[in-house]
Nucleic acid binder design. Structure first.
Lengths: 119, 119
DNA sequence: CTGCATCCGATTTGATACTG
DNA sequence: CAGTATCAAATCGGATGCAG
């Protein structure tokens, strides 16, 4: 079975998939769920600087794409847990690599940026 | 040597790096340069649906971060080539994996989305 | 108290047309 | 060919509000 999809084609559905992955906070949320299910507040606390609105939107999108699952407990105070689905966990593999790349190459990027500002 | 940076910290510079990688078209442009240097028009033709404005912005950002190089030939008609730097080529590794993941899991995502719209 | 939804201004993205 | 200018649209981010 050959490769059926090509992200470079404008009409290809893989395009929208890649755009979703490329959304600002997707990488952060998926990586934050690496070690298991987390509550909304935990995610918000862990991913420093994300606003509840954006976190909600990101979670809803990922849920719609079948990448995370949402489990609401009938308790008081309310309690909602988010977890990666098997599909989401498979995405975690490349996204973890992206995250590690970012953490490893910060100095290189910063060096390039400062070189730029000198010019 | 331990890990010095953590993308989850709001003040950590790796945050801005990951946001740059996560920018809408970065994954497409870096992947499009996989097989070697390309001209502006080639990139625009290959990455279907990208506008010249957005392509320019993406290329400038990637250049500022030291991920691609820009070589302007003194010819007529004008000729400009873009290529991955060694740093950019190292980023290509995880981004290629992301691209392949997207192409392989289109059906799963689409299935999840259609399941959503039924509800 | 937690887990959001809503409003609104600021930024980013995109379509189209045009220039050196 | 390789972009820029312009304007419209989508998205982001912060403040606030509110129900369970």
């Amino acid at each position: 079975m050959g490769k059926a999809y090509n992200v470079m084609a404008a009409t290809c559905p893989s395009r929208t998939v890649l755009h979703r992955i490329g959304a600002r906070w997707t990488v952060f949320v998926v990586n934050a769920l690496d070690e298991g299910p987390r509550r909304f507040g935990e995610l918000k606390g862990h991913i420093r600087g994300i606003t509840p609105k954006v976190l909600t939107e990101t979670l809803r999108s990922l849920e719609a794409d079948g990448l995370i699952s949402r489990h609401e407990f009938d308790e008081n105070p309310p309690r909602v847990e988010y977890a990666l689905t098997p599909l989401g966990r498979s995405l975690l593999v490349p996204l973890r690599a992206v995250r590690l790349w970012a953490e490893e190459h910060v100095r290189d990027i910063e060096a390039a940026r400062s070189r730029q500002s000198i010019l």
